[in-house]
Structures are given as C-alpha cells and as structure tokens.
Computed example of a mutant assay.
Amino acid sequence: MTTPLLSPRPSQLDRTAFVAHYGDVYEHSPWVAEGAWERGLTEAHDSPAGLASAMAAVLSEASPEQQLAVIRAHPDLAGKAAVAGDLTDDSTLEQAGAGLDQCTPEELARFERLNDAYKKRFEFPFVMAVKGNDRHTILAAFESRLNNTPDDERRTAIDQINRIAQLRLEARAER
C-alpha cells in the first residue's frame, strides 16, 4: 500500500502558496505552517504524516505563551460557536462527526457546565481530537482531564491539537 500524498505537495510550494494551502491546519494559527516552511520542506513532508510531524515540531518547540495562543484559538466543544454556526469548516465537520451536533438539551447543558469549569481551572478551552469518539467518551474525557495539573493539561491539549492537525492532513490526502 502506498502512502497517500498531499496535493499540492508541500515541498513544491513557495511560502505564500504553502501557507495558503496549509496555514489553516492549526486553528487560526498560520504561524505554525510558516515555521514549518521556514525550516525547509522536502519530499518527506509531502505525506500527511511527514507534514504533520514537521508542523508538530514547530508547535512543540514554541514558547508556552505561543502554545496557549493556539489552544485558545480552538472553540469550545458543543459550545456557543457550534450552536451559532460560527466554527471553521474543519471544526464543524469534526464536531458533527462525533455527534456533537445531536446533543440533547441535557447534554448541551453538561457540555456548557464542563466548558465553564474547565476554562475557569485552566484558562483555555478543552481541546480533544474528537474523530473516532462520540459525545459520551468526550464528556468522560472532559471530566477526567479536569483533574490534571495546568502544565499537564497544556501538554495534553498540545498533543491533541497535533493529533487534530494530522487527522486534518490525512483527510485532505484522501480527497
């Protein structure tokens, strides 16, 4: 089985074109793509895994303040932006794929309470790669992660954001 390649191929793009095509992989944070391009892209970065790894390295090596900015760029799960239809296309598809657009009023109220408690504790939104999960497993993860320390939760959120980016790149390669 051959590894799917991204189109257009990242290694063949100039900075402007690369950021135009891949700058939205990290929610409202095109600087991650800019950093990956500046480090140099080769044919190894033309696959979803290769580009995801390059972009994850940029975010992982960023300052805690830059990381927090990326975390804070993410919407609440099943939050007001989702209800109002104000999510990015990727976030809308991801949340719908996990059934978050089908929450009961009670589940929406639970998400709202957990979102509020989480943001009060950590000062950023709960972030989770929801693909392959449903609203019940997401709610369980939400409750569990409320017990993390702020530093552990920042690292967990960054890991989840890198996972989201990889899933987004894989979806683009499949189109």
Rank of each mutant, 00 (worst) to 15 (best):
M55Q: 08
E61P: 00
E65D: 14
H45M: 11
P75L: 08
A44L: 06
H45A: 09
A98K: 02
T42L: 12
A49C: 12
V83S: 07
G79Y: 00
L59F: 13
E94Q: 14
E65K: 15
A81F: 02
R72K: 08
A36M: 11
A62P: 01
I71W: 04
Q102E: 13
A62G: 06
L87H: 13
G85N: 10
A56D: 14
R72Y: 05
A69W: 07
G79I: 05
G85T: 09
V70W: 07
L41Y: 01
T88L: 12
A52M: 00
L100G: 02
R39S: 12
P48L: 13
S63L: 11
W37I: 09
A52K: 00
A73I: 10
Q67Y: 02
E43M: 05
L93H: 14
L59I: 12
A81M: 04
V83W: 05
M55S: 03
A96W: 13
E43K: 02
L68Y: 13
R72T: 09
D89W: 13
S60Q: 06
T88C: 13
S63F: 11
W37L: 08
G50P: 05
G99W: 08
S91C: 15
A36K: 02
A57C: 06
A78I: 10
A82K: 02
D101S: 07
L59T: 13
L51F: 11
P48S: 09
R72G: 10
V83A: 10
D76V: 03
D76R: 11
A62M: 06
T42C: 03
H45R: 01
D46C: 00
G79L: 03
Q66N: 09
G50F: 01
L100V: 04
A82V: 07
D101K: 08
L100A: 10
L93N: 12
R72Q: 11
L87D: 13
Q102G: 01
R39M: 05
A52D: 03
M55K: 01
A62T: 07
T42F: 06
R72A: 05
E94L: 13
L93D: 15
G40T: 08
L51C: 06
